[in-house]
Amino acid sequence: MKVTIKDIARAAGVSHPTVSKALNGSPGVSKAVRERIVSIAEQMNYIPNQAARRLADKKTQTIGLLWPKSEALFFHHLSLQIQQEAARRGLDVMISLADPPRGLRAFNEHFVDRIIFWSPPGWQPDMAFIKQKELFHGRMLLIGGGVLKGAHRIGIDRSGAIYEAVCYLAAKGHRRITFVGDSSDKQLGFTRGVLEQRLDYHEHYVIAAKEGDPFPEQRVAELLDSPDRPTAFIVDSQSYAFGLMKLFRDREIRMPGDYSLIVYDDIPEMERMEIPVTTVGPSIGKLAALALKIIAGKEGQGQDRLEDIEIKCELNVRKSTGRL
């Protein structure tokens, strides 16, 4: 049977408003009475009604994550880092994997007043989201590249990341490099790197594949069998990296002896591979820390100004890349 404030009040011989004040740390209750009420509440295993408290003050100590329906390990590790950063500040984290309007509606219903929303470049809110945003009274932060009026923003320099990867491989003597990924800002960074470094170019050195598509194994296999095969690969996702490495194993191809490999997204799994993989991408720890600094700041302490930050990516050199 659930213990209520009235049960504690009867046991303590006081009114239930007095119990409420004592448990909430409100003034008007002596220290001795407060300590006695708290002790009785603990003995009776009283669990506070957080929903009622939210109804009273319309605030929570909770951050809501509007997260993509993705199996990418990057989002798993980033959400864990955000949770750890939030816990250090005494905040809880709720995650919604629903479509953004529905997730935002759920957070509104639970009075969540801090929201971190992963939105890719080019994302546009629909009318359902706009209506829920109008009902939202709190701080919202977009991560990933999307833009929303009245919200903080952290963008990621993905183009610069792939450009840096190309320059690194070029410095190691690689002239023929293949990029596997979607035709977005990452591919622009690849093209810029190839042109500036004056590298060899072949139409098959860009294998376009949209996010969520399976690894283009046949196209990569045909490239490996061609006379124009590259000496290095840059892939823009973990799924493509795992697909490429499986193809390498099936063909007994060695890294970096036969091919060098750089993967976008510095997830811990890349460092734990049999051949640790060189990565380029945003630091998950730094991204989480920056997000919490923005979203958890107190009003009136310099956090009212909307932040618009573009973070640089980091190249982490490991054993999957070598010199020709």
Score class of each variant (00 low, 15 high):
K210Y: 05
D157C: 09
Y205D: 02
P230M: 01
Q197C: 15
G212D: 07
H152W: 06
R158T: 09
D213H: 08
F179G: 01
D225S: 14
D236V: 00
G155V: 02
Y163P: 01
A171N: 11
G145H: 00
Q197T: 14
H174Q: 12
G155E: 08
D182I: 03
Q238C: 00
V206A: 11
F190G: 02
I162M: 11
I207G: 05
G160S: 06
G193P: 02
S226G: 04
D236F: 07
S184L: 09
R153C: 03
E196P: 04
Y163W: 10
R153G: 01
D182M: 10
G193V: 10
F215V: 08
R158D: 15
D185F: 04
V166Q: 04
T231H: 04
F233N: 14
V235C: 15
E222K: 06
S237W: 05
Q197N: 14
A151K: 04
E222A: 14
V147W: 02
V220E: 00
F190S: 01
D236T: 05
S226E: 07
T231G: 15
Y168Q: 13
Q218Y: 05
H152A: 14
G150C: 10
S184R: 04
L169N: 04
G181P: 02
S237N: 12
G160D: 06
E211F: 08
C167Q: 11
I154S: 03
T191V: 14
G146H: 03
S183Q: 12
A165T: 05
L188S: 13
V235A: 14
S237P: 06
A232H: 01
C167Y: 03
Y163Q: 09
A171C: 07
Q218A: 14
I162R: 06
V220N: 02
I162Q: 10
D213K: 12
G145N: 05
G160F: 06
R158F: 11
L224K: 08
G189R: 03
E222H: 03
Y201R: 11
K186T: 09
G155P: 01
I177Q: 07
L188Y: 08
A170I: 09
P227D: 13
I162N: 05
V166T: 09
C167A: 09
V147C: 06
G193C: 01
K186E: 13
V220H: 04
E217Y: 00
R158V: 04
D236I: 02
T178F: 00
G150W: 00
S226M: 10
E203C: 10
L199Q: 07
G160I: 03
I177C: 13
R192M: 12
P227C: 11
Q187R: 13
V147S: 13
A165Q: 01
Y168N: 13
H174Y: 03
D200Q: 14
S183C: 08
K172L: 15
Q218K: 12
D157I: 00
Y205S: 05
S237C: 12
V194P: 03
K172I: 00
I162H: 10
Y205I: 09
K186R: 15
D185R: 03
G150L: 06
A165F: 02
R153T: 02
D157H: 08
S184A: 11
I156C: 11
I156F: 09
V180F: 08
A221N: 09
I162L: 15
K149G: 15
S183V: 00
P216F: 06
P216K: 06
L195K: 13
Y168G: 05
A170L: 07
I154M: 08
A221R: 08
D157G: 08
G181E: 08
S226A: 15
G181S: 12
K210R: 14
D157R: 08
Y163F: 15
A165G: 15
